[in-house]
């Protein structure tokens, strides 16, 4: 079969028309979307700024400590806000990195001291818990 008869037999006209229409409408839609992108971007930036603001606001927990405290009780007052944020069970590495971020001096020494005093109790797999009662006992003794 040849010619128009062959085209009709396989519904060729519809195939060509639908194909051309889909390609054309796809690119028209894409063209429309990219023509609006430059309007959409500032909107995104606004939303981004709004979301970023509350994060920048809480500077309350920064602890400007000048010297390395030798007293466990003083050291504990520096670490407790961080531990409260991390929850009852936390990875020690996370506590260490947060202490560094907050400029707490010599965090490794302090953490080591807490561990030796039994205030930081290992739960396995690098997870630790903060024993408040042990801290009170150590402080009373000290």
């Amino acid at each position: 079969m040849y010619g128009i008869e062959a085209i009709n037999a396989v519904n060729g006209w519809a195939m060509a028309a639908v194909g051309a229409l889909i390609v054309f409408s796809g690119l028209v839609m894409l063209s429309f979307i990219i023509s609006q992108l430059h309007k959409f971007v500032p909107l995104l930036e606004k939303i981004g700024k709004k979301a970023a603001k509350p994060e920048a606001s809480p500077p309350t927990e920064t602890l400007p400590v000048e010297k390395c405290p030798t007293d466990l009780k003083v050291q504990a007052t520096l670490f407790e806000p961080l531990i409260e944020k991390l929850g009852s069970n936390f990875p020690l590495a996370e506590l260490y990195s947060q202490a560094k971020e907050q400029n707490i001096p010599h965090p490794h020494l302090s953490l080591s001291a807490f561990r030796q005093a039994g205030i930081l109790v290992p739960l396995g797999d690098g997870i630790f818990t903060w024993d408040k009662e042990q801290l009170t006992t150590v402080c009373k003794k000290g």
């Binding site: 128009i4 085209i7 396989v10 060729g12 060509a16 194909g19 051309a20």
Partner: peptide, 13 residues
């Protein structure tokens, strides 16, 4: 051009 040729190729069998 693709879709016109599609018709041409169908017409040629």
């Amino acid at each position: 051009g693709i879709f016109v040729t599609l018709l041409g190729a169908l017409a040629l069998g």
